[in-house]
Amino acid sequence: MVKTMARNLDGRELLALALVWSAATLVTATFCWLFGDILWHGLSHISWTFLTAPPRNAGREGGIGPILVSTALILGVCLSVSVPIGVGTAILLAEFTTDASLFGRLTRRSLDVLSGVPSIVFGLFGNAFFCKTLGLGFSILSGGLTLACMVLPILIRSTEEGFRAVPTGYRLSAAALGLSRTTTLVHLLFPAAVPGLLVGLVLGVGRAIAETAALIFTSGYVDRMPESLLDSGRALSIHIFDLSMNVPGGDPNAYASTLVLVVLLLAINGTASWLAERWLHQRIVTV
């Protein structure tokens, strides 16, 4: 009796051991397959010419020069709008509201919902608001503004963490010295909270660069070199989508563009976790 129980237990333990290891192996294998495939097919097409030349023949030949420029411009618009709003909101939430205040709770709740909104819905909104109502049309400006709405929750959460990580002693000492809160903020808290802001910034860049669905109806498809922010510009992720779905024979260049995008993202996310571990002494989870 005792013996069979012990054996059953052992059997269950062994089964669990096998299951856990095979789950981990399956996950690792799938991702090695994915990365390996992209690296294998993409690497042979990457060259300086590919990175700088304009696309020809609907993207089958040529490079991704103008597309990288458009991506950078969209990113620039996105950050120059989202950083001031995000940092301001984070300061308000971390320094000037208590957890119980109505305004703080409402803002936090609405940011929670915002972080869950599907990207295609941001696309719909951006198309209706920025392109149509504000009359910006399909443009880099519309795309960047739409992305700014999207990255706000990440930016705010991480910046707020940065401010909360500053020791309370700083604020008490400053108050004891009779400094205004503005002075305290600018000269003491802000420099101490910069790492959190940087992490948020880098994570936001990562999210923005990865985005496709929100950009299709806001920044558009045009793959020429953009001349102003009101021109339509094609982001790198849309280029991959278009090459693989709409252009027969576009796969080789799609592979190369994918590799560029993945390498960019790995670099960005690596920077974010390095910053976080180095300065905030915490691990970040980008879900």
Partner: peptide, 27 residues
């Protein structure tokens, strides 16, 4: 200056908080 700053931050946070509403309204 503190009061000015606070109102500025409140304005900015209102924008951030209102985006969700704006999205729903436009939809």
């Amino acid at each position: 200056t503190d009061r000015l700053l606070l109102w500025l931050l409140r304005g900015v946070a209102t924008i951030a908080g209102a985006i969700v509403l704006l999205i729903v309204v436009f939809l």
